[in-house]
């Protein structure tokens, strides 16, 4: 204490030499302490302890403020407040659970719509099958190509029709004669020594591109009394070549949405 008092005496900014910081309260009301006097450093154990306590206070304040920035709402809340908060949370949870149920039902509906997608796929498959039957789409697959060479011009519509029926019996799925796709309503006609297929003139050699089981088709053509034998009797030749993959590229235009009775003819 004495060293600090000596230190105080030498300080120039001191206004009143009567040292007021002694623990003597009698002269205290007579002098006016200044901020400079307040801020004078006085080094001793007690002051250091005071400073240490102030440091603890500042540290605690900063810590509390910092932690209060987070969730002091719950740290200082009492039981009833916490119960209220919990009730709010429970209600919110219920609402969210309802939302979840709604969303799940929507999801289930969407999944049913996905099954509708598979129905759509089935419809597309069916449409493709119908397209194959109606001759509106090109088809590729295993099959044979039957070439009928008719040097004497004795192959008429009846022979071709027999050939066609034989192929169909043997499981031919798609047939194209020269450049004409055969469909259900296709018909051969004799017109002045030429053969017409659906009104379009066919010229020898007649090439049947047939998609189906190649072995079955070839065998069906070669049976005794079958197509090949008949053609040979007419001076023509029928040669069947098997292909593991054959393309029937001729297509028909789909009939417009008019009266559908026109497609009912015999083929």
């Amino acid at each position: 204490m004495s060293t600090s008092e000596n230190d105080d005496d030498t300080r120039p900014e001191r206004e009143e030499p009567a040292a007021p910081d002694a623990p003597d309260a009698t002269d205290a009301p007579n002098e006016r302490p200044t901020l400079g006097a307040l801020l004078r450093p006085r080094l001793n154990g007690g002051q250091l302890l005071v400073g240490l306590l102030c440091l603890v206070v500042g540290f605690a304040v900063a810590t509390q403020v910092e932690s209060g920035r987070g969730d002091a709402k719950f740290a200082t809340a009492r039981q009833d407040e916490l119960v209220g908060v919990l009730d709010d949370l429970a209600q919110r949870s219920d609402r969210l659970r309802q939302d979840l149920a709604n969303l799940q039902s929507t999801k289930a509906q969407l999944e049913r719509d996905t099954k509708g997608d598979t129905a759509l796929q089935e419809a597309r498959d069916r449409a493709w099958t119908y397209g194959v039957l109606a001759g509106t789409v090109p088809v590729a697959g295993p099959g044979i190509e039957l070439t009928i060479v008719d040097p004497q011009g004795r192959v008429d519509a009846g022979v071709l029709l027999d050939t066609l029926q034989e192929l169909r019996d043997a499981g031919a799925e798609v047939i194209q004669v020269n450049e004409v796709r055969l469909i259900v309503s296709s018909h051969f006609t004799d017109a002045g020594g030429a053969v017409r297929l659906d009104g379009r003139a066919l010229r020898a050699p007649y090439r049947f591109r047939v998609i189906g089981d190649p072995d079955t088709l070839a065998t069906a053509l070669d049976i005794p009394g079958g197509v090949t034998e008949t053609l040979r009797g007419l001076g023509a030749t029928g040669v069947a070549t098997k292909y593991p993959k054959l393309t029937v590229s001729a297509v028909r235009e789909a009939p417009g949405p008019g009266p559908t009775g026109s497609a009912g003819g015999g083929g």
Binding site: G51, L55, G58, F59, A60, V61, A62
Partner: peptide, 9 residues
């Protein structure tokens, strides 16, 4: 000490 405590905290 007070300022140092605040800063440290």
């Amino acid at each position: 000490g007070l300022l140092a405590g605040v800063v440290i905290g």
